[in-house]
């Protein structure tokens, strides 16, 4: 089965991200495909590379990045949500004349159409968050 995933919560306040990661690992282990993860609301904060959690804690942003590389998963951050919350890649940095960018390797910033497309393309769209 082909899965699309939506993550609606920030990485540490809420357990939604880790639950989504666990779901994806299990789905892939059972031979399913995860086509795309779409990060919305505070979920966009899963894609910053400036998080430095304590060493005995999970680094959720890095975990996403590694997971995406290992299983070729498209990690998409919503541009409208990202602009409100200060997530930027090269393109956003240039467009909005910011003094830097903070996106984690393996993520990309794009529009809400990517979420709708995931709904159309996938057999199941699974939403994580309240």
């Amino acid at each position: 089965m082909k899965f699309g995933i939506q993550v609606n919560e920030g990485p540490y306040t809420h357990e939604a991200s880790v639950t989504a990661i666990n779901f994806i690992k299990s789905a892939v282990a059972k031979g399913h495909e995860v086509f795309r993860v779409f990060f919305y609301h505070d979920g966009v904060n899963n894609g910053t590379r400036y998080a430095t959690p304590p060493q005995d804690d999970i680094n959720i942003q890095q975990t996403w990045s590694d997971l995406a590389k290992e299983h070729n998963i498209d990690l998409v951050i919503c541009v409208a949500a990202a602009q409100r919350r200060g997530l930027a890649d090269d393109g956003e940095q240039e467009r909005n004349k910011l003094d830097g960018n903070n996106i984690m390797d393996g993520f990309r910033i794009s529009g809400l159409g990517q979420l709708i497309e995931a709904g159309i393309e996938c057999d199941r769209l699974v939403v994580f968050g309240d």
Binding site: N8, Y40, H41, A80, A81, G113, L115, I116, I120, D130
Partner: peptide
């Protein structure tokens, strides 16, 4: 299922609906 203010979910949900409308679903 959430109140319109207090959290951003309602407003950002409406943004998805409006963008999604372009996909003729």
């Amino acid at each position: 299922n959430k109140a319109p203010y207090g959290t951003i979910y309602a407003w950002e949900s409406l943004e998805v609906v409006l963008i999604g409308a372009a996909f003729d679903q």
